[in-house]
Write a protein that binds this DNA or RNA. Structure first.
Lengths: 147, 147
DNA sequence: TATTGTTATACTCTATAACTATA
DNA sequence: TATAGTTATAGAGTATAACAATA
């Protein structure tokens, strides 16, 4: 306790620092909330992408998430072994694995969405409803493609 | 272009997604702006911590940044080889290395702060001055220790 | 010849353990 | 015995290359 713990205001006022640590905290809260469901935040992202689109190949899911197909294999392996999704070959192109949520996968996705929303509320507890809404809106505007 | 690129709104409205990608973009812009100075955002963080406190040991700097002392060695090696800081033994305890910015280190830190501030402005270009200020404030409030 | 999924490999980042020199 | 710095090692995470099946 003999150093004033923390990097100091020159660092903590930087946007990169703030975003990094806010994300780290959000990730920690999400994974804590998801642990009882047997998945982590990364896996929930994959489930949500699958739930959001027509059934597609592993590669399509990977592209939408911005990860490469070789990494996708292990994620699909894991989610399949948990019974949350199924692989089956595309009838017209047997090179492709169509990945689809199982009933359990749909259920877990819904439950996971609820618990992560509560985790978000925990992170934002220090803000008013308006401030929270403005934060979300500002981040969305930042990331929207310029045009 | 045959998939509507992007993971879909179920994912992109999640706070974890927004914070992660906003940070990724900030990091990209910062590193791009810092490249001509020969440092990256991580190294600037270290320089800023050193600039913000009385001269201290490597371990103190590492603790303030939340990284361990073994990783610190390589960072200090790199910054020392660039002439931005110096190591010298503490006169009363020769186990410790006191790290201090050189004149070049102070100059680079000042210049780097300016260019990263412009990088922040680029990230926030879609926001009004008020909105940008509110975003920064909201993030700081989120990360402030509860009390 | 090109593409999908897969496996094997390498590379980065970080954490853990062990060594040295000081205390 | 404990601590600061260092080095060596191992572990996650991710990217690249090569291979099998299919188109």
């Amino acid at each position: 306790m003999d150093d004033q713990s923390g990097p100091g205001p020159l660092v903590t006022s930087r946007l990169g620092y703030l975003l990094k640590h806010a994300h780290r905290e959000m990730d920690r809260l999400s994974n804590e909330a998801l642990a009882p469901l047997g998945i982590d935040a990364r896996e929930l992202g994959i489930l949500l992408v699958i739930a959001s689109h027509e059934p597609g190949s592993q590669q399509q899911v990977a592209e939408r998430l911005g990860i490469d197909r070789t990494s996708m294999v292990a994620f699909v392996d894991s989610l399949e072994s948990k019974g949350l999704l199924t692989r089956h070959p595309h009838p017209d192109d047997r090179r492709r694995n169509i990945v689809e949520l199982t009933d359990a996968g749909h259920h877990t996705t819904r439950t996971a969405s609820e618990v992560t929303q509560r985790a978000e509320a925990t992170l934002l507890a220090a803000l008013t409803t308006d401030q929270a809404q403005q934060l979300r809106g500002a981040l969305q505007r930042i990331l929207a493609p310029p045009g």
